[in-house]
Nucleic acid binder design. Structure first.
Lengths: 349, 349
DNA sequence: CTGAAAGCGCTAACAG
DNA sequence: CTGTTAGCGCTTTCAG
């Protein structure tokens, strides 16, 4: 087995306690003995047993991260931001994939809690937002921060985007580019999706535009979903000339469908996504999108968590809304027209 | 604090041991008492303390995963395959990002080992392949599986692609499509990169083609790297008409550079990447690539690990090479010519 | 400055 | 079938 403090202690003829203190840089140890202990520890390649240490100190230096879909690079980026910010403090993260399934999520959460993690970050897959999250987490005393999926319940730590603003920003951009028949491919039945839809509708209303019948179509989260949804829109007698998609993968799928139908982007149909996944710029048509700054979400969550974990008394819940940012690329840029504000002229294209 | 076995025991007037056994489904307990204990545990929402359990059993049910770049979806897919396969056994994974930096990797490894993880999966960022990996891992007794980065040293568990085959496959495909001036944008100075380069060169030799001067250019791992490298190739008096890129991101960057130069793909220049990241099909030009089946790498690694962790005696090291698979998309498909074998006719395009 | 005693919450091994 | 004894490797507390 690995070398223990006890081994070093016996080896050097001091007590176990002395070794423990010396190794942790406690002041109560003479320069001399500390030196000897440190040297011997290095020689023996001593590594403290964190399981034992955790049991005694009640701190694991582990943070749990529960996300619904590792394959979506949006969440991979969040994970990246989180590890990046947490690593300097000695935390590592244990990763759990809920697969967008509430039951799986609950099981993984229970296991994480049983592991006595110091903190938790979760993008929840719970459907029932009135009690889902609180139910699973309210009995636990560890600090946690919710990300991406905004909780509707009591005040909790949250870092994410204001989805309504996001939807508004995307839609108004399409309008500014001269689109007159707007559609929205919307995501799964979660708060984000609903928020973006609300933003879409608000923007229409605010600009005095009617929301067309069938202009909101069920999509999903993946590119296949966007592909199908767009095909559905293309089958309408008068297809839309501007589409705001739930996220970038969906938008990428939508682009594929539009091009396959022989139509041009953004000429015939302008497209805007959401998320600004890192390959957006490399897509078939460089994709205009709303940047949610995923890695920053991870970083902010990390900071809140570190703050909570350091102080005994829980600070008051923080809600950080990272302002969505419009990124205009080819999929929606109709600059010639938008500059002139000739909205109706678009039909000519 | 949370409820402990002791609490349940006192509550029910039985011994702590009885509770422990009942909870773990041990046979030595009467149906009746087991029932009572289980019910009470549920009522009190008892969760076993895994830190304590781990200290006693010497098993944590944690597997470490160390990868060089979470942002690269190739590794995200591996992580996905790993969690997917490991979750049913009750394992969770703690994720460490080495940022392609050997020193960071060593530190994270040390921490993982100190956490007494049951197993380890590493895509190592070590530069010195003769001693890097073994150095860090040889003193530990936990089972580990190396992935993606093939070790050159002694026999160890490994799951990945045969990079030489990969390079060969990509290059021969380009040749079959009528390309006559081949180039290779190669990656960082690691075994994968070198293997792919060897494959590239072998394919040239095998087909009686000379390797042109300056046909191998330094790239990197990201799309910016590919973009720059391709610009360099385009500056040659006679640029290549077929380019095999180290990986998909690099290829995506290369595509961008080619298109910006006003040239056509695959007409003027055919491109092949490697990795088949999930958005390859959605790129500006749908990207031909060599599929490495990333999630399968994760799954296979998981299986080997589970096998090792179950049996006390370490099974003999397994080396799983997942055969690379050519996926032909638009970026290299010149079917009209390749079908006729009119290699030289390509110039006409 | 050093160390002995007690315990973190659980399990292995054995005894009743 | 049930319970007792002894740790797992480390830290906290307090006495020397």
């Amino acid at each position: 087995m690995a070398v223990r403090m006890k081994d070093i202690a016996e080896d050097l003829g001091v007590s176990l306690m002395t070794v423990s203190k010396a190794l942790r840089g406690h002041v109560d140890i003479s320069e001399d003995t500390r030196e000897r202990i440190l040297r011997r520890a290095r020689e023996l390649n001593y590594q403290p047993n964190w399981v034992a240490r955790s049991l005694a100190t009640r701190r694991t230096f582990i943070v749990g991260l529960v996300i619904p879909d590792l394959m979506h690079s949006f969440f991979a980026e969040i994970a990246y931001g989180l590890t990046r910010e947490l690593a300097p403090f000695g935390y590592q993260i244990v990763l759990a994939n809920s697969d967008e399934n509430a039951e799986t999520e609950r099981r993984e959460l229970d296991l994480l809690i049983a592991r006595k993690i110091d903190g938790l970050v979760v993008a929840s897959a719970q459907r029932d937002w009135r009690r889902g999250i609180p139910q699973a987490l309210k009995n636990i005393s560890i600090p946690f921060v919710l990300i991406d999926r905004m909780p509707s319940g009591p005040r909790m730590n949250y870092v994410g985007t204001c989805d309504e603003d996001l939807g508004m920003l995307a839609t108004e951009h399409l309008i500014s580019q001269g689109c007159v028949r707007l559609a929205h491919i919307h995501g799964p039945d979660n708060p984000n999706s609903l928020g973006r839809l609300r933003g879409f509708q608000s923007a229409l209303k605010k600009n005095g535009m009617k929301s067309l019948p069938q202009c909101v179509v069920e999509g999903g989260v993946k590119d296949e979903d966007g592909y199908e949804a767009m095909q559905q829109l293309l089958r309408l007698k008068t297809p839309p000339d501007g589409v705001f998609c739930y996220n970038d993968p969906v938008a990428a799928g939508a682009i594929k469908a539009v091009l396959e139908s022989g139509r041009g982007i953004p000429g015939d149909i302008a497209i805007v996504g959401a998320g600004n996944v890192h390959y957006s710029d490399l897509l078939r048509v460089p994709l205009s999108t709303i940047d949610q700054r995923a890695s920053e979400i991870g970083e902010q969550a990390a900071r809140i968590l570190v703050e909570c974990m350091r102080t005994k008394s829980a600070p008051s819940p923080k809600c950080v809304l990272i302002p969505p940012r419009l990124i205009i690329r080819d999929s929606s840029r109709r600059s010639d027209f938008s500059n002139l504000g000739q909205r109706t002229a678009m039909r000519a294209r």
